[in-house]
Design a protein around this nucleic acid. Structure first.
Ligand SMILES: [Mn+2]
Ligand SMILES: [Mn+2]
Ligand SMILES: [Zn+2]
Ligand SMILES: [Zn+2]
Lengths: 137, 137
DNA sequence: TTCTTAAATTATAATCATTACATTATTGGA
DNA sequence: TCCAATAATGTAATGATTATAATTTAAGAA
């Protein structure tokens, strides 16, 4: 059922292939809603009723460390959010409905950082405001 | 001792002027290190040994809500950080030493958001990597 | 295939940040 | 000075994350 893609990604990173990792990767790949760990856990519990929440923490942790997925925190939330899309893009968080929108960008950090001597590995751009839908109301 | 500036800011926003608010504002103005609430609390306890941590939460909350200060969260930290500088700028977080650097920017969000119909009120740009100092070692 | 070991999963407890709430004190205007 | 709204306090509760130790599993070697 098309898990080869995920198996390949794990092997490339030298991570062991487990059912939990594959299922979480598939879920995140098909649900680009920037879920919290708890949301991932609730989904996983449906499929694996005996799963431990710690497994979700561990899986997410290994996927982030190996750069398979991205993570972000927003000022209005106390939880870590994750995103299967690890191509750099911006996020817009609506303060009214809470929806998190993806925004494309062509921001070039390298030039900005070069003169400072810093080496960037990753970044988050979080924009807060009122989304188009909510603005109309 | 130059508190007029802060008194003025509070009055402009319709907030009551209290010793705690003034002291926290002065502290944040003079310490642009993006402290956590706990760091602000530890400082305040020196000056006001009987202060409640809740007061720090409340003060910070009112300063953020009135847009006098900015706040941000980083993926590697579970705590809210605050910044007296509310002019938009970027932050670079060094994964080695933990230092948070300010970076100037001329990012224009308006154009980016216009076509999506979103209305931005604020944003955070958090860049993660290794800072110049740590890179040399 | 079986053995071996490092890595992953689990369960539980502990810690840390934040929120809720009820009480008391203070600010700023009448 | 007096009053009402707001701020500060103390305590308890909640929620997210981390720590730890025991058990199970993945995957390579024999
Ligand atoms: Mn995204
Ligand atoms: Mn700053
Ligand atoms: Zn919205
Ligand atoms: Zn550094």
């Amino acid at each position: 059922m098309g898990l080869d893609k995920y198996i390949e990604m794990l092997k490339t990173k030298g991570l062991k292939v487990t059912q939990h990792r594959l299922e979480i990767m598939k879920y995140l790949d098909n649900n680009r809603t920037h879920p919290t760990l708890d949301q991932v856990y609730l989904y996983m519990k449906e499929k694996f009723p005996s799963i431990s929440k710690m497994t979700v923490y561990n899986v997410i942790d290994s996927l982030i460390s190996s750069r398979i997925i991205n993570s972000m925190r927003f000022v209005n939330s106390t939880e870590l959010h994750v995103d299967f899309d690890n191509k750099t893009h911006f996020h817009f968080v609506c303060g009214k409905c809470g929806e998190i929108y993806d925004l494309d960008s062509d921001l070039d950090l390298q030039e900005l950082l070069k003169k400072e001597g810093h080496e960037a590995e990753d970044y988050n751009v979080n924009i807060y405001g009122t989304c188009g839908k909510c603005a109309k109301k």
